[in-house]
Nucleic acid binder design. Structure first.
Lengths: 236, 236
DNA sequence: GATGATTTGTACGTATGTATA
DNA sequence: ATATACATACGTACAAATCAT
């Protein structure tokens, strides 16, 4: 129940971002890719939607060339499915595949948490503690919006604490691919309280330096199957 | 010490391959991407090599357009680093990043093995047993080439036994990105014997249905740090 | 630092393959 | 089943940015 539905925007493909800091001029294809990725992850372009090159070119006020390049990159990242001569559609994984992706997501998050327990430094530790305490207050106040926002930072802090950028990229990429199939999870107060309780188990294990415990607590927190079922409905 | 240096050729980006079976006509960009990926993973285009669009276009007898599309996809998959207005080079991860990638690789393989222990079916089980036994014979005969070949199938069998295609794709993608930084590992007979012994621990755990044991055995088998060091030398 | 050469980014036109009548 | 319409794949030309001098 943790993965927030507003995805962390990946301005640049994870890969490239980490390989080199990218100072250079922004290209149109980049902007278009970023914009399309954002719309897909937000659910504005639901799975199965056909991405028409000419229509997109007209919409963005460019020729088809940069649109095509954006589509190629999104296809390689798995967010869309580009079929030769038949156009590209927003990816629509099978139910079984979604289950697989959720399972992997849980394991990646668990690995992040485990590495965090092992590698977190004092500054990161303080930040995680503070953040978690603040979220406790948000929960007590019933401030859903703030909690959701903070939840992003919470998970991001755990990613960072693992000190493995490649793992972070894989995790974010998987999260991005799953985001069209998730929606708000913090509607009820009970959910929010449960989430915070699960977070507490994760944080405690991390601060204790308990790698296995942190991984287990995070794995449970992600609650794979639940997510998978809940989201699949919206596909049909 | 297991990852074999001749990578499993990824004809199609893992992503697309699993989303849809691709019956359609092959496109030039696809062929070029496949060819370039192959050359990079084989080490024919070492890290840092500049991929000149015009030169590649001339070489493949096409215009720059399909070459550019191939480059975009390879960049998104992380095999190359495309810098706006500055050309694309074969990815050259930092030493720290390589370590991160090897660590993740070990964890992904471990996860595959763990899932395999949990989900393998009788037919797959028989195949794994047979394959492992055959590799024992190859080891005793000192047949390096055959062993290396079979090693590919061995790992692929374990991937398959996990019944999680998404995980398989992540694992193969990571393996592909690491392949330029690996080289032959089976030179010495002792290495071959040790590999087989480690395989034996993995297989035993899998056949016993011992998820954690299989994961641990596989994690050990991958021997992250060793690989990372050994391969980094070739970068400089 | 300015200028020319070179390479990449974008626009546009044509060919080819797919889908529908 | 054939033909027609349409979208995509590719080629070519130009614009813009980078780099070499």
């Amino acid at each position: 129940m943790s993965l927030p539905e507003s995805p962390i925007a990946l301005a640049v493909p994870p890969t490239a971002a980490a390989t080199t800091a990218r100072p250079g001029r922004r290209t149109r294809a980049e902007d278009i890719r970023e914009q399309l990725a954002d719309e897909i992850t937000r659910g504005q372009q639901p799975p199965g939607t056909l991405l028409d090159e000419s229509a997109l070119a007209a919409r963005f006020g460019v020729s088809r060339t940069p649109v095509r390049e954006a589509i190629r990159e999104l296809a390689a990242s798995g967010l869309i499915d580009a079929r030769p001569h038949r156009g590209a559609i927003v990816a629509r994984p099978s139910f079984e595949r979604l289950q697989n992706m959720f399972e992997v997501m849980a394991e990646l998050e668990a690995l992040c948490a485990g590495l965090c327990a092992q590698n977190i430094n004092p500054a990161e530790r303080r930040r995680l503690e503070t953040l978690h305490a603040d979220m406790g207050e948000m929960m007590r106040l019933g401030d859903f919006a703030a909690y959701r926002e903070a939840n992003e930072q919470f998970h991001a802090s755990i990613y960072a604490g693992g000190h493995n950028d490649y793992l972070v990229e894989l995790t974010l990429a998987t999260r991005q691919r799953l985001s069209p199939f998730r929606r708000a999870q913090f509607r009820a107060l009970g959910r929010l309280a449960l989430s915070h309780l699960e977070h507490d188990r994760v944080v405690t294990a991390i601060l204790r330096g308990d790698r296995d415990g942190a991984a287990m607590a995070m794995r449970d927190h992600i609650a794979i199957v639940h997510n998978a079922y809940e989201k699949y409905a919206q596909l049909i």
